[in-house]
Amino acid sequence: MQALDKALAQVGRVVLGKPEQLKLALACMLAGGHLLIEDLPGMGKTTLAHALARVFRLDYRRVQFTSDMLPADILGVSVFDPDSGAFNLREGPVFSQLLLADEINRATPKTQGALLEAMEERQVTLDGLTRPLPEPFFVVATQNPVTQAGTFVLPESQLDRFLMRISLGYPAPEVEMELLAGGDPRDTVRGLKPVIEPSGLIKLVAHVGKVRATRDLLDYVQRLLEATRADDRLVAGLSPRAGLGLLRAARAWALIHDRDYVLPEDVQAVWPSVAEHRLQPREGGSVAAMTQSLLQTVPVVRG
């Protein structure tokens, strides 16, 4: 799809040398899911989120999570208005179209929980009043690797709310040279031109649901899910919700590649970013290697 290619090209201008990750991030948005970026500080997470917001002309807010943060700092508070004698809601940063939750693992579980509930329900209930969040609504959360000190590990149930987890990683040497030679990325982000309007994005998200997935493909997806459950290196297998998410992500991936049907490659492409953060190894070892090995053992075509 031309518009999507253009959007990718725009974002690629600021996040250099990471086309796969950009596509995954885009697929995650198109699939209507929330994105978790796990990286060390300074790898361009914020730049990516900001760039995505620019090309879709989304209302963008950024919240730096800290350990002293309260749920109200995200959701908003009711403030008494002495003039009218009533409580008015002061909307928190969650009332935006693209929320960048920076270093989400620095906040207490309570605060994390408030955000994650809002992400799932796409609405916020304050003082008994339920208010819908804007549409579209995306959360891009960033997280420092759990080995870093002073962080609260996101519980699995919360991680499941993120459709994908990606990490950008260090740039390749020649890309880094280019990065160093270029100007301030923040200026470049400001110079990005919107490619798709929010209404267009909503339409695209709706369109993802219509991408065809045949029985042969569903069969493959199901066998992949089944394989995670049968694997005794893992604590638990993928949930049905994860399965639905995987299929949705694969559909979005297919749409980015200008197809109205899903191929097994689409599933394989989104598989690590959808599965890895949801799975826990029983006794150490790399989850990435395990999920990758599942791809090597589950036949694409039965028989």
């Binding site: 191929l263 490659e265 791809l295 090597q296 589950v298 036949p299 694409v300 075509v301 039965r302 028989g303």
Partner: peptide, 24 residues
């Protein structure tokens, strides 16, 4: 699925082993 298997077996006979986990 039969057809896919036939091609894989045919390739294997000619010395190219393609894993069943490979997509088309």
């Amino acid at each position: 699925e039969r057809e896919f298997g036939r091609l894989r077996r045919g390739l294997a006979r000619r010395g190219l082993d393609v894993s069943a986990c490979h997509s088309a």
